[in-house]
Amino acid sequence: MHLENVVRDARDPELLGRFWAAALGADPFDGACSRLHLGGGAWLDLCFQPVPDAPTDDPRLHLDLLGGHRQAAVVEELLALGATHADIGQGDVPWVVLADPEGTPFCVMDERPEYTATGPLAALPLDSADPDRDAAFWAALTGWVPVEGTPGTRALRHPAGVGPLLELCPETSPHTAKNRLHLDVRKDTADDEPPQGARRIHDPYDLPWVVYADPSGNEFCVLEPSGD
């Protein structure tokens, strides 16, 4: 299997799709989706699915954008696109917390050696009850490999050494509600199955995917092979 999509619940998918495509320099396609090219032929798609109500949860997965020495300029560019400053109790920290046009927080990061050459999306921090265990789970699920991450986390990256880090971060509270952001993986062959520790939480009905939870309860979808 391979990691294919970052999926966000949205009241206005096209509005958020335009914002995030512009924020990350991704290529829009299919209405509310865009493709972020990571280099070396690797990519991630950003997809926005409609929901009737605004989410109220604290997101267990969020986006960390590359700032570094351009942090202040990147923040100004994002504010011009429709982002706003956000206070989530972060206090005095070297990164900047913003919210997208529907209020979901994300961060513009300070200079960090682990984010060298990631491109505009530096990291995908995911809450975990056991980062060591969950890093092994997501490595087996996606084929991403361990790398040095932010202190206190366990990090994975595309085996080509491109794109963002998937950072398993110690959770501050257990998973209790559907997350507004989740990841999709796609089977490489019809026989692929998630690794031990995955819990199936929805039947496929007539949909070309099945919803699972990782060992910490974070939802993810398994898509059928593309047929390409």
Rank of each mutant, 00 (worst) to 15 (best):
T176N: 08
G197E: 11
D184W: 01
G161V: 13
A155C: 05
E167L: 03
K178H: 14
E193N: 14
R199S: 15
G163Y: 01
R180L: 07
P151W: 02
R199M: 12
D192G: 12
A177R: 12
R199G: 13
Q196I: 12
P164G: 14
V185A: 04
T172Y: 09
K187E: 10
P151V: 02
T153Q: 00
A177D: 10
D188S: 15
G163P: 07
P164V: 08
P195R: 06
L168W: 00
P195D: 11
A198D: 11
P174D: 08
N179L: 03
R200H: 10
R154M: 04
Q196T: 10
T189N: 06
A177H: 06
L183P: 01
P195W: 05
R199W: 09
A190V: 15
K187N: 06
E167H: 00
D192L: 12
V162M: 11
R154T: 04
H158G: 04
P194L: 10
L166G: 00
G152V: 04
A160W: 10
R180V: 10
A155V: 01
T189V: 11
A160L: 12
T153L: 01
P151R: 02
K187Q: 13
R199T: 14
E193R: 13
V162F: 14
R180C: 12
C169G: 01
D188R: 07
C169V: 15
P194T: 12
G161E: 14
H202C: 13
T176P: 03
R157K: 08
R199I: 09
Q196A: 10
T176E: 10
P151N: 06
A155D: 01
R154I: 03
P174Q: 12
